[in-house]
Design a protein around this nucleic acid. Sequence first.
DNA 1: TATGAATGAGGATTCATTCAT
DNA 2: GATGAATGAATCCTCATTCAT
Lengths: 198, 198, 198, 198
Amino acid sequence: MNIRSVTEKTTDKRVQIMDQAIELFVTQGFQQTSMAQLSKSSGIAIGTIYHHFKGKDELIEQTYLYVTEKFGARVSISNEETELPFKDRFRLVWIRAYTFFIDYPNYFFFKDTLNYSPLVSQELKDKGSKYYQASLDLIAEGIEKGLYINNNPVVLGRWIYNSIITATQITLNKELVMDNKTLDEFFEMTWRSIINEK
Amino acid sequence: MNIRSVTEKTTDKRVQIMDQAIELFVTQGFQQTSMAQLSKSSGIAIGTIYHHFKGKDELIEQTYLYVTEKFGARVSISNEETELPFKDRFRLVWIRAYTFFIDYPNYFFFKDTLNYSPLVSQELKDKGSKYYQASLDLIAEGIEKGLYINNNPVVLGRWIYNSIITATQITLNKELVMDNKTLDEFFEMTWRSIINEK
Amino acid sequence: MNIRSVTEKTTDKRVQIMDQAIELFVTQGFQQTSMAQLSKSSGIAIGTIYHHFKGKDELIEQTYLYVTEKFGARVSISNEETELPFKDRFRLVWIRAYTFFIDYPNYFFFKDTLNYSPLVSQELKDKGSKYYQASLDLIAEGIEKGLYINNNPVVLGRWIYNSIITATQITLNKELVMDNKTLDEFFEMTWRSIINEK
Amino acid sequence: MNIRSVTEKTTDKRVQIMDQAIELFVTQGFQQTSMAQLSKSSGIAIGTIYHHFKGKDELIEQTYLYVTEKFGARVSISNEETELPFKDRFRLVWIRAYTFFIDYPNYFFFKDTLNYSPLVSQELKDKGSKYYQASLDLIAEGIEKGLYINNNPVVLGRWIYNSIITATQITLNKELVMDNKTLDEFFEMTWRSIINEK
DNA sequence: TATGAATGAGGATTCATTCAT
DNA sequence: GATGAATGAATCCTCATTCAT
């Protein structure tokens, strides 16, 4: 059971740098975070940062992949769960994505900001999407089975992802106390909006 | 019939500056756009820009209000339309918001980017929201009438706004040819997800 | 009698910067002279330097032209002198070039170093050579009249220029006391090496 | 017959490093060539380079001596040639210096650039000049015999060296096709300029 | 109002050198 | 000897802002 990872070989420094970078990026934004500040607050010499990452852009890109990989790991379906009914698996993934973001708000803000930034190329997004391929397969499965109203995978992907984002934003902004019941209502809102009712 | 406007007093320069600013902000981002470049590409001396706007931050804020006002103007319901059934008015607003973004992609990107930026304070957002108060009232009306499944105005507001954003993104990214039928399906997807079915 | 000049419009700062730059470049070399040091020693803010010159490279280029122009002005033949015999005019130019370098040793070192540097492109050299076009014409005149042994203008140009450089180096390095008699011997050495003796 | 050499003890690495260094220095300049790049392009770890040379300055100095030694070896007069007439020996040395530079253009550019650089101290130049002592002796011999117009060895040394440099530059810049006849004319131009004609 | 030269703090990046393995 | 990760001072350059005209 060999899990390949971007961070696998990394003993220390690389991950240390990225973890601190996320912290600062999220708090202050990309532009507002200087490499000097990252160096100081991580306790790692600025030259060392440049030894591990070609420049600020590469640092951001690598950090994006690092976070996306963690996201993908959380969101996957285990072997035993494969047998569950479609809606249950769908809910599982939806809820796991949501709880991942709630557990790691920084990762959420980091990822969310990057989606609206030219700092992440389409190429990089595609590379990152491999980490949560299983979730994309789930959408495809529904299309094959003719479960959805709209059968365009891009539309569905965005729509579902946006629903998770919205739930997360509301929770993190404390605009609503998100207990289990409310969360499930939210999920049902999403489900209802895409599924063909018999 | 007094229409108050951010741009009212402005004869020329102010609007010229903001229009060019939007162009550059959208193409290059806020940080990447320097005041010097704005001066050069607008043909207005840098000192003059500072006569009209205290600084870069104020320029961004004012431009945000300028765009938001235009958005609000488009999205409003006319007097004659007031008598239409709720769903029709709801659809009208939804479609108008969508077409506004499609007509002015720059305004869309500008607004969308700012939502994820610390450059716009909550205070400013609240100020801007007055321009599309009518749309918020529409949501409130639905709540009063008990039409929705979920009655939290914040959740509803975000959810609906996100649905418009998603449709716009898909169209502008040319991920889908958005003809009238497809667009209406998209609207129905949104409507179905929030409305209490009898 | 309108003399066009690179430095014509310049009131102050541009020339101040270039004069100080030459001083530092000659003493320390191009790479060893930082823009910060130039700013400090000239008393001109670093931003101002960048306001007048796009970057270090342009500063060096412009300074090269500035010096070359001064060189050209010194080396030219006045109207009255046009009537002098060829050898006298030739000597005039040779001696003037030499004394220019002796009067402005910094200009000499600056120009000499740049000749062996990739910092000055061929294009720029050609541009600069316009300033001493009259001297090049003098060489051409001798070729037409069949005075030289070797009739290649490039060879002649280099050879003559090298003779001036050599005399200058020896004088400035104080390897020899260069009185008028010695200098004239030096000139004759050059003359003899290129002229067809009847 | 013990020939001392800078490169004598060197098995491999030292010379490998210097050869690659010359390549880079000539192509890019001294400052533009970083030790890291030298390490990468030579395939020798940066730490190893520092084992063989104290620092960058020493590397340049040693490389200067390495090249100067090669130059000296080429330019020397063999035992059998000692009996030749003065002018023939003079020509032999002049031509050999020229062909050395043509054969090893990199060595030429390297040496030529360093002559105008503060990186090589007078002390080092003197040290290097031992490698071509025989050529300097040839000049002295001419002075003793009263062959020259000008009897200053420094003037003569520079003048002659400059003549070789000029010929080399013209050839390498392809400003002239340098066949044997042209080259000999060039040599005669030099000879004529310094020799007392009976 | 309008102009644009002048300012200098701050940012990204480079690179010679060291040292533990 | 050989290696290359780690260091941080130093460098070039940008840019929001001011102010005299």
